[in-house]
């Protein structure tokens, strides 16, 4: 890997620096007077609602960041600031190093036409257009020829598994199918950045699970930079590379799923993690001992495997296992005592 490309990988695709979004007429004045120390209660007394409070983070290329929090915690507002559907009250937002808030409306339209896609909770399909017309819509407003946009849209229809339904109207589809259309539409312009605001929250639990699997499959192929909003902690754990937990507009903790479960930063975060079965979140890596060549075996497990998926076979083998790193030529990186697995599952 060359030096320069390594560096490029390090510049985050999305970067937020002290982003504030405060609703209300006098928001800017109040914010300036408070010198960055925003107290939601005090602001509320002054007639302002705090949506996002001092958010700073970056999202790397190909990373999936999940924003989690209860309803009203400011997740959508944060997302809408980054897509500039609403203007942040203060702070800096960079997309691929470019200052988002400095863009004029023409640049913004260009950005959305080429780099961004968004999926909505209520699907937000155009009721007067068919499936394929909905999917082709972002291409058509961009000025792509009908023929080209239709063939591209057809590819998308196939990608999300709706082949044969391209001439249906949204009202003729189930919720899950409608959201597939929403996903296909958001991907039609081949964006780099993909925003999803509670895309599966309006669906039944069974369908939701199916859609999550489908989504992971898609991401495995597409490798987009993703900001995914959800109020469902389990969903966040399943999907995320990193999770940002929000409360009252503040990001309480931003970390990998296993770190959040193992080391919740605040009482608030702890409440979410308490009921989470660890084996469902933790990877083998987090409970292995350092590699010891004296105490090894031919039974190997990947360090990135989730404990639950291997629990049965590990417990059956009753022997010490060798942990390997599949990304690094199956290098032996640790050893695993099955008793640790028992401890994770039962000993809390």
């Amino acid at each position: 890997m060359s030096q320069s490309s390594h560096k490029e990988n390090n510049t985050p695709v999305i970067k937020c620096e002290s982003v504030y979004k405060i609703f209300g007429n006098n928001a800017l004045n109040l914010l300036e007077n408070s010198k960055g120390q925003v107290d939601a209660k005090k602001f509320q007394e002054a007639g302002c609602i705090v949506g996002v409070n001092n958010a700073s983070f970056g999202v790397a290329k190909g990373e999936m960041m999940v924003v989690m929090g209860l309803s009203g915690s400011g997740k959508s507002t944060l997302l809408r600031c980054i897509s500039r559907l609403t203007d942040a009250t203060a702070g800096k937002i960079y997309i691929d190093g470019e200052d988002l808030l400095a863009m004029n409306s023409k640049q913004l339209i260009e950005l959305r036409r080429n780099k961004m896609g968004m999926v909505f909770q209520s699907f937000a399909l155009l009721p007067h257009k068919t499936v394929i017309e909905n999917i082709a819509f972002p291409l058509q407003v961009k000025g792509t020829s009908t023929k080209e946009s239709m063939s591209r849209a057809l590819e998308m229809v196939e990608l999300v598994g709706l082949k044969g339904r391209e001439n249906y109207f949204p009202r003729e589809l189930s919720g899950g199918q409608q959201q597939r259309v929403g996903i296909a539409r958001s991907l039609a312009v081949e964006p780099d950045i993909w925003f999803l605001d509670e895309p599966f929250s309006a669906l039944d639990p069974l369908i939701r699970k199916e859609m999550q699997d489908e989504f992971l499959r898609l991401q495995g192929v597409l490798k987009k930079t993703i900001m995914f909003v959800t109020h469902d902690f389990d969903e966040a754990l399943r999907l995320a590379d990193r999770i940002a937990i929000m409360k009252d507009g503040i990001i309480e903790q931003l970390d990998t799923p296993d770190n959040i479960v193992l080391n919740p930063a605040t009482e608030y975060v702890k409440k979410f993690t308490e009921d989470v079965p660890r084996e469902k979140v933790l990877k083998i890596e987090s409970i292995m001992d350092p590699y010891d060549s004296n105490n090894s075996s031919s039974n190997e497990v990947s360090k990135d495997a989730i404990i639950e998926t291997l629990a049965e076979s590990i417990l059956n083998s009753k022997k010490i296992l060798t942990v390997i790193d599949k990304n690094d030529n199956n290098k032996k990186v640790g050893s695993l005592d099955p008793s640790k697995v028992i401890k994770v599952i039962f000993g809390r």
Partner: peptide, 8 residues
């Protein structure tokens, strides 16, 4: 918003 994000 979906219209806006489609680049209208």
């Amino acid at each position: 918003e979906s219209g806006l994000m489609s680049g209208c």
